[in-house]
């Protein structure tokens, strides 16, 4: 409640706005790119680019300052890693043990596709065998015929 005092000051200070030209500084497009790679340290899972917290605002100012000083994006990231450790990076560096997490999606998809290929081969082979076996038989039995008819019917509407 102690904040009431300063809030009142704010109220009293409200005076008509003076028309002034817009601030002309142009934002470095790299700022957002770099800041979104950094973890906002007070908010756990938001990036420095996104977090509305004061700490993040100060860290953005730091990024801005270093970019203006001529650092590359990578150098700015390294600057923060030196201070905070790898933890500050929202995506782990592609090196050493971290390859595991970067490789996981590829491994998962590759494994999935291999299983898919094996299953498809085995199942189509089985189908061929059965069709071949059925062809040697004199005629399709009535129950089978009925099933085929039903499935075709269903197919028509799906």
């Amino acid at each position: 409640m102690t904040r009431l005092a300063f809030l009142l000051t704010v109220l009293l200070a409200a005076t008509p706005a003076l028309a002034q030209p817009p601030a002309t500084n142009v934002e470095d497009p790299r700022l957002y790119e770099v800041a979104s790679q950094l973890r906002c340290v007070v908010c756990q899972n938001l990036s420095v680019a996104d977090s509305p917290s004061e700490m993040a605002q100060q860290m953005r100012a730091m990024v801005r300052e270093r970019l203006r000083a001529g650092d590359s994006s990578e150098q700015v990231l390294q600057f923060f890693v030196d201070k905070y450790g790898e933890w500050i990076l929202l995506s782990p560096r592609k090196q050493g043990f971290n390859w595991l997490v970067w490789g996981a999606p590829l491994i998962a998809v590759a494994l999935g596709l291999v299983i898919f290929a094996i299953v498809v081969r085995r199942w189509t082979a089985r189908r061929r065998e059965r069709v071949a076996a059925a062809a040697t038989r004199p005629a399709i039995d009535p129950a089978m015929r009925e099933r085929i008819r039903k499935e075709l019917e269903l197919e028509g509407e799906r």
Binding site: V42, E54, M55, Q58, M59, A61, M62, K83, G85
Partner: peptide, 11 residues
């Protein structure tokens, strides 16, 4: 400006 706290990796 928060500069010192960033320099010390304060979270």
């Amino acid at each position: 400006t928060g500069k010192v706290s960033i320099d010390y990796g304060v979270y």
